[in-house]
Design a protein around this nucleic acid. Structure first.
Lengths: 206, 206
DNA sequence: CTTGACATTGACGTTGCGTCAACCTTTAAC
DNA sequence: GTTAAAGGTTGACGCAACGTCAATGTCAAG
């Protein structure tokens, strides 16, 4: 098994440039360099490349990959750290998508989004420092992004839905409704339906 | 309203370097440059900056933002394209997270991961395409993302919290609890607290 | 022998700023 | 009046992981 750089590239689904790059930075050396300067790779190099590509898909940087492969000691810690970052990034993407979709929807309704919605944002910004000090940065950032992604009408609608739900729920509780399933399950349905309107909530969990 | 570069940076939550960069690339020119060379920004600049930052949050690149602001014609198409890319990226992240977690789990059990786990990733990819074709891309990405972004323990916790809440709520309703505030407001607090654990839910709505 | 496919090294381009560096202004304090 | 602390300016390099020429050498086939 003696592969040229192109052959290895095609086999592993990457490019020759990448392979030379890995060679340059000492991540994956060719197993042999012919007299004409051509790089050649053997089975061992291929396996190492597989691991490299796997770790790369897992999001590790090339230095990190080199480190892991160098001293094969617990990649677990690195991975654990990394999964945290991935989750954060993933959450951010979810918010981004919801926000973009909301923007598109508003656009399609012919609304001129930008105008006063900006001032909403502005108010929010000034509010921001206070909130951050009282509730912590993370909490603010997370909650703000979703809320801010909505236009005024949607925010109003959200508030109303929450108010209605809470109202019905209280009413049901205080009136001691017909003990069980009919009314309460109806409430539960609406409860779940409302949750579904929150970005990221899975529709099909139970 | 005449803002220095720092003042504008703080107001808008960005940095002076960013503002100078935007000036350099012609995205946001200072409204006035004093005789000493200092940049000054007015209300108009601030509004334009708000739009820039909004579009940036939506993930558009600076040239794209410039284009949108230049000929104010339908950002819808650009956004639509972008949301597609975002979804793809998001789906990829979800797979990444799952894969990393699988790797971690395997590691902790002392297994030598790399070998056949690579094929796991492969399987997963193939599975994904099937699912996407059968259920539609959107549905898959949206419903799956949040849920899958959690580890098993978190999913379990989420289920339990939901079950407990629903249980208490039903119990309260069926037992016709002391008509009002004490118990119901306590439930409401927990209700809200639970909602807060869902990514993106604003903590301080009322 | 020539053509075309594949190899080499070298070096600049990409994205959106962060981060010095070296220097000038304004403000507040002593 | 002097001085030190802030805050301003223009370059210019750095980063992550290669993509993409450019200029040139090598190999197999017609």
């Amino acid at each position: 098994m003696d592969l040229s750089i192109q052959q290895l590239a095609q086999l592993s689904g990457t490019t020759s440039r990448t392979l030379r790059h890995y060679g340059d930075i000492g991540l994956l050396a060719p197993s042999r360099i012919a007299s004409n300067g051509y790089r050649h790779y053997d089975q061992g190099a291929l396996m190492r490349l597989q691991r490299i590509l796997l770790l790369r898909e897992l999001g590790l940087g090339l230095p990190a990959i080199a480190s892991v492969l160098a001293h094969e000691t617990s990649p677990a810690a690195a991975l654990r750290t990394h999964v945290t970052l991935l989750r954060a990034e993933q959450a951010r993407l979810v918010r981004l998508i919801a926000s973009v979709e909301k923007t598109i929807a508003a656009q399609e309704k012919g609304e001129e989004i930008m105008a006063e919605n900006m001032f909403d944002g502005f108010d929010h910004t000034q509010h921001k420092e206070e909130v951050e000090q009282r509730w912590g940065k993370d909490a603010y950032a997370r909650s703000d992004a979703w809320w801010r992604g909505m236009d005024a009408a949607s925010q109003q609608a959200w508030k109303e839905r929450l108010a209605t739900l809470n109202g019905d729920w209280k009413a049901a509780a205080s009136s001691g409704v017909a003990t069980d399933s009919q009314v309460s399950s109806e409430l539960a349905r609406r409860h779940v339906a409302w949750l579904d309107s929150i970005p990221g909530t899975p529709a099909s969990t139970p």
